[in-house]
Design a protein around this nucleic acid. Structure first.
Lengths: 335, 335
DNA sequence: TGGTCCGGCAAAACCGTTTTCGAGCTACAC
DNA sequence: GTGTAGCTCGAAAACGGTTTTGCCGGACCA
């Protein structure tokens, strides 16, 4: 398992009978070079299967051609989709993504950023996360940084996100329009921005329609399927009445659906159900789940493009992304 | 958005009034250094918030402290889990993962490897993928390489995988033991190693129990939920009889479950259903899905440990990992 | 014809580390 | 008292590129 003696720029120079500066010029198109020498260099590169050492490049040029990505968590469908989008957006730009997993933990996130900085990333994309604005501001002062899937007041144009408040409001309004007035809500993890916004949207829609908010119909979940089950059981034990349930994400909707079925409560005939995120499997729930689709991939791609443009010193501002209500079969009109 | 003038080892040396070689020695613990100087250096490092430039390190030392990961696809639950495991396994080893997405495409996979090699990764972990053994052999001759989620004959000890044939055999035997004799199978993507092995296991179990294999009961799917729906509809149109369905992954099982419910066929009362992979949501299917759990995370972690050991020149062989039949409620005993 | 520009390229400096080499010192044996 | 071994530590040489500098010769102009 010997590591081949890689060929270096010096080998190419010798082989093509030019100086290594010329080789560098040909490779980077910085200064015109005579046709025949250019050709000789290219031939040598091909012949010796030369691949420039990115470390040397990075050292000399100061640019690493690397973009650091701090993910919220690898293995969560929504965040994976975003990450995937960033990777896709970086494709063929010459930049390579360097991904470090935040694992839902602020301290790990901070360490991730340090690792990335030590590896001289040219820019950063942070997906979600719980770092304080102060921390983020400090990072941004060191490297161009874009944010995805999190709304930050002072970062307009530098973060890609969906208006969670509005989306939750719309979902709730939709349920009300379908004749539902007793609408339960399973919230996301306590303290998480998205969870808070969704709950606020839910509450606002009820208020705007003159429906009294009933705390009995709210369960504080944690985005897991298990907490969806727990929510339904809690509602039933409490004796809370509800004709519809709005879960703050699809996983909890799945859990709720299972719990309902165990009690022989039919979806949507007896209870309507709505989720959030539009995970791939949600279209295959029985019945297919009505939910809110976030343009996760698109947000990732946009963030990647934004940072590449930014590094070329072309300004680029990120738009607000639209959430889309995906109507499937888990909601029925009441009466 | 200025990039701070990062402090270099020279700054530290000057500040601590020692030579930079001493600083390096303190930082890497290579050679003993007098107590007071050591202290001075450490203080300076803290004071100036020094972070060594990984590029310079890589250049000088020849080691990048980076492990390249080629994933099958970001966004597929199973492969994400594996990737996640590799990342976790690398945690606190000093190595950083560099992830490039293969996107289910051989050419992209090959390009990914080249990118990784150009970035001087010290080792490679390849997750799944479709590269030929010849290609892989060539890669392995350049850098230590481990394989996850794919079985390669000549790589014993260097690949972490589950015995798909055996697992599928066991699943089918289990269904037979539950009294089923008309067992349908929805295969995975045509030509994919795992799909082939699972189909073979299915066929072998039937044969061993003296049950005639009926091609009418096999549908060639592609691992997507949609193809699960298609499978059921095809079976019904064909007029094929079946009391159980074994889908080669959970997504297709979800699709099948939905299609069955649309035809008012109950699971498990009328038809039993089994999947493969044990995705997180499968426990929340209605009814919870009986399936095969692969230790995805564990395989990833093991591969990471293996490569780290390998780089320290300590030999390390990967075991064969056990698949585990997860019994839930989607299968019923026949009569 | 002579001076000035300018394009093309080789040579050298530089990027920030690690590593090699050997100088200087102390300790110890003979 | 000298020789030797064993430390610690500074100077300098890598590592493999990019960027700057400066030289050379030819074109252009007066």
């Amino acid at each position: 398992m010997e590591i081949d003696k890689k060929s270096t720029i010096d080998d190419i120079a010798r082989f093509a009978k030019v100086s290594k500066s010329t080789v560098s010029r040909v490779l980077n198109d910085t200064t015109p070079v005579a046709k025949d020498k250019r050709k000789a260099v290219l031939a040598a590169v091909k012949k010796l299967d030369f691949q420039p050492n990115q470390f040397a490049r990075g050292l000399a040029g100061g640019l690493s051609m690397t973009i650091g990505i701090v993910t919220q968590n690898i293995g969560s469908p929504f965040y994976d989709s975003v990450t995937s989008g960033v990777i896709k957006g970086l494709d063929a730009t010459g930049y390579t993504p360097l991904i470090v997993d935040g694992q839902w933990d602020v301290d790990i996130e901070k360490a991730a950023v340090q690792t990335l900085l030590g590896r001289q990333v040219d820019g950063l994309v942070i997906v979600g996360g719980s770092m304080t604005e102060t921390d983020l501001e400090k990072i941004r002062s060191q490297r161009p940084t874009f944010m995805v899937a999190r709304e930050l007041d002072d970062w307009s144009g530098s973060c890609a996100f969906v208006n969670n408040y509005q989306a939750a409001y719309d979902v709730t309004r939709y349920l009300i329009e379908q004749g539902h007035r007793e609408i339960a809500h399973i919230t996301g993890i306590i303290g998480h921005q998205d969870a808070i916004k969704r709950r606020e949207g839910y509450a606002a829609a009820l208020a705007d329609c003159g429906i009294q908010l009933d705390e009995q119909r709210i369960f504080e979940g944690n985005f897991s399927g298990q907490s969806g089950i727990l929510a339904i059981e809690t509602f039933l034990i409490r004796g809370a009445r509800f004709s519809a349930v709005f879960a703050a994400n699809d996983e909890m909707a799945f859990g709720a659906r299972l719990a309902l079925s165990r009690r022989n409560i039919r979806v949507p005939e007896d209870v309507s159900l709505v989720g959030f995120d539009d995970q791939p499997l949600s279209a295959f729930m029985t019945p297919p789940l009505t939910t809110v689709a976030q343009p996760a991939l698109e947000m990732g791609v946009a963030a990647a493009q934004a940072i590449v443009q930014r590094l070329k010193n072309k300004p680029f501002t990120l738009p607000v992304f639209p959430a889309r209500l995906v109507l499937r079969e888990s909601v029925t009109r009441l009466r």
